[in-house]
Amino acid sequence: MATTTTTSARAQSTAVGKRPRAPRHFLATVAKTVLALVFVLPIIFMFISSLKPDSQIFADLGSLKAFLPVGHISFANYTDVFSRVPILQFLMNSVGISAVTVILGLLVNSLAAFALSRMRIRGKRIILTLIIATLIVPFETLALPLVWWVNQLPWLQINGFDLTFTHGWLDTYRVQIIPFIANAFSVYLFHQYFDSIPKELDEAARMDGAGWFTIYRKILMPLSGPAIATVAILTFLPAWNSYLWPIMVIQSENLRPVMVGVEYFYQLNVAWGQIMAYTSMITLPILVLFIAFQRSFVNSIASTGVKG
């Protein structure tokens, strides 16, 4: 994998190198910079506004000041947010829910993709088509039947050595996790990626008597770093951002995820500064995570795409 990327990148620069360089390069840089501003300014605006009182947010709209930390800068909005919403609890819930969804999602979807990519299964083309077909169903249209349905599902309660069956999943962590583990797009991405790994590798292992699960665990998965990272991101984002679902299935405040907290600020007068502060705080963890892993994130998504 790594080899392909470097060679193609080198080829790109050679290709560019043959062209008259300076003006083109300059133009491209200008274009890239303008684009960067377009993408980053609204987000800067959010962070900067979170430091200002409402009246100043509106007053600053007319000038560059909207993007600059000038005027009455304070963390007042942040302290207000903390007194209004149990944000730490919400953050912890979201971290937990997202992390578990990601880990189980990686396992379940890669296993399915492995089977469909590597093994001879009767009707596997139909199975794959059916899996992909689930992508066309927007969650919003299924939410209500699903609420009723999850409330009928059983659950095994384990208290030490005491096993009891309970029924109904409402108002739990699991109802925010389990329905979102299996994901057609994740299966599809893993499937794509596994297909790009030469079959000779696992055939050799088969000759040596390795079982399917060993091949999955010892050969394919270690080679699939980029696919794992991609699926992790694509599972993490919707889990972190989930909104409609927890509104419908969560009643206890201590189980709520971060996005529901936004609703707290629509009561009474809409406090824009507080909303900006809250959304900044719930966006910041992902941004930091993203910037920290920027290189592997972007490169990994890039290398998971369809091979030409």
Partner: peptide, 17 residues
């Protein structure tokens, strides 16, 4: 075996979609 490995994803998709 393959169906077994694909089963968790298939069952979950069936249950929740």
């Amino acid at each position: 075996t393959g169906l077994g490995m694909a089963a968790p994803a298939l069952i979950l998709l069936a249950l929740f979609i």
